[in-house]
């Protein structure tokens, strides 16, 4: 790869492939969410995941292209004079640009909301169609919000990669060394951190974050509703009944604490009056 190719390579790798993947996935999830609200056989939504679904196919193709480009990275990275970079630098760059790391690394919020929502696994299946359909709709909505979240994260990484590549190009065009591996990492960390933080302040990101939180909440509530239906069937206390009990216990404890305080201050004031009495000659 000659000097100016750094920019082109990263632009191809992330902008095109990344956008293709997320667009295809979003289309697929939209289709799934749409099917969830359409009356019909229960298995219908699963058609969205069928191998013949063009959206799924295009997502798979785009992801495969991205992974192949990433795998080829070590053989395509060269120094300013067109010679192959040493294998450690190439491996480091490959690690830095690993698409799997990028999508996973800063999806903290995304991952956490999903984990919170997916807590009780037993609620993921059942026979009561209405509750189950609501549960699956909530799940599809969470997935759609999650993909949108990853798109924002990927967008920030792409911007960071473009800036990083431009820096490398600048050094290469001047015939300057890329610096040590720790220099490279330090430059990358500063650039990537800045772009991630900038993304977090964008209204479109905040809107998606709220959507993600709502979707995970609704999924959790749908799971609880389904679990409560089973609870009623098997004679187990429902979530609402447990919460009522917790409320009563909290109120009773509050009263106990107040009563203890009152009795303590009564004892203290009695001690005060007896001390006063003693003081009187």
């Amino acid at each position: 790869m000659s000097e100016p190719d750094y920019t082109k390579f990263f632009a191809d790798l992330w902008t095109n492939s990344g956008a293709a993947i997320t667009a295809a996935q979003q289309a697929m999830m939209k289709e799934l969410a749409g099917k969830m609200v359409t009356p019909g056989p229960m298995m219908m939504p699963l058609q969205a995941f069928s191998a013949t679904n063009p959206n799924l196919q295009s997502a798979a193709d785009a992801f495969q292209k991205l992974m192949l480009a990433w795998k080829d990275l070590p053989s395509t990275v060269t120094t300013a004079d067109g010679k192959p970079a040493d294998h450690i630098t190439a491996a480091l760059l490959q690690k830095i640009f690993d698409p799997r790391e990028w999508l996973n690394a800063t999806g903290f919020m995304d991952e956490t909301t999903r984990r919170l929502a997916e807590g009780p696994k037993f609620a993921d299946f059942g026979h009561i169609e209405g509750k189950l359909a609501a549960l699956m709709t909530a799940w599809a909505e969470l997935r759609a919000a999650s993909i949108e979240h990853q798109t924002h994260v990927l967008g920030a990484w792409t911007k960071a990669a473009t800036e990083f590549a431009a820096k490398l190009n600048e050094a290469a065009s001047k015939g300057a060394s890329l610096g040590s591996r720790s220099d490279l990492v330090a430059i990358w960390v500063e650039i990537a951190n800045r772009h991630q933080l900038e993304m977090q302040t964008m209204p479109v990101f905040l809107e998606n974050q709220l959507k993600l939180l709502r979707a995970s909440t609704e999924l959790r509530l749908a799971q609880q509703e389904l679990a409560d239906v089973y609870g009623e069937v098997f004679g187990l206390p429902t979530r609402a009944e447990m919460d009522d009990l917790a409320r009563m216990v909290s109120e009773l404890r509050r009263e106990v604490r107040a009563a203890r305080r009152a009795s303590k201050s009564e004892v203290a004031s009695n001690r005060g009056s007896s001390a006063k009495r003693k003081a009187v000659p």
């Binding site: 690394a105 800063t106 903290f108 919020m109 919170l116 951190n193 909440t217």
Partner: peptide, 28 residues
Amino acid sequence: RLLAAHGNLPGELMGSIFASMTPMRTLL
């Protein structure tokens, strides 16, 4: 709705928000 679903503000949620405030530090 969030508190109805979880009862409390989950510690994991707050932890993830703190982590996302220093993204590269958390990643590395």
